[in-house]
Nucleic acid binder design. Structure first.
Lengths: 121, 121
DNA sequence: GCAACATATGAGCATCTGTTCATATGTTCA
DNA sequence: TGAACATATGAACAGATGCTCATATGTTGC
């Protein structure tokens, strides 16, 4: 058994129980993509943001209405909206004094729908 | 304009810019479901766990091989596998001294595929 | 311009999260 | 049974995260 000396206790030995340890690297997306992907799902990984998305799934709404119906602070909503917008899950348009937010594309509902399917099993 | 006195600066006034603030409550899943959904997506919201899932997407693997190919500590992998298993994204079986992990169902790849579609735009 | 409304933003704080380290549990084989 | 291998787990710590509070920016109508 070969010995690797990288100082990590997890990799002091090299063996292949399933013989698959090295092939997957070709399949694995590069680090940047993996990070982006994780960042994307992180958006869905908070019940506040999920609630915002559910609200916008039904109707476009201004910040004020979102805060009101979700029983949240305007500031808290605004902070989360910024995150959702950075990830391009939502867009907005100004309408007078208000800014109306809406879902950006169909991926949002697709992803959530898949998630719901999973937890309903 | 009605005044609510709940002490939150976000909801001191009640108005309906879009007129949709109260209808969505019928559509919104209950708190438990929302929490479960967020917990599920939280699993995908970490690049380590995403990498584990990608690895298992290709081949079932033991903890040791995962740690080796992902260049992680055995302990770190094991901790994350526990989380993924709790959320029923993966299952395992014992095979001699090793424990082989694999994806639990097709939802995992569906969800990740949707995520990839989104970030590739 | 100014007052009222609507939203955005930065700092501070408490909580959550992922890793490491040490160690416990479980399996195989001699 | 004991030694080596394989995995799991708990405590502790550092970094990330979401909220609040105060305040800044931007819009409308007088």
């Amino acid at each position: 058994m070969a010995i690797k000396e990288n100082g990590k206790n997890a990799a002091v030995h090299v063996h292949e129980h399933t013989g698959n340890a090295h092939e997957l690297k070709n399949l694995m997306p590069d680090e940047d993509k993996l990070y982006d992907l994780a960042e994307l799902f992180k958006c869905f990984g908070d019940s506040t943001r999920i609630r915002i998305l559910f609200a916008l799934f039904e109707n476009e709404m201004c910040v004020c209405d979102l805060a009101d119906s979700l029983n949240m602070t305007q500031s808290a909503v605004s902070h989360q909206l910024k995150i959702l917008k950075q990830m391009k899950l939502i867009t907005n348009r100004r309408e007078g004094k208000s800014i109306i937010y809406m879902l950006a594309d169909s991926h949002v509902s697709s992803i959530i729908a898949q998630g719901i399917e999973h937890i309903l099993e």
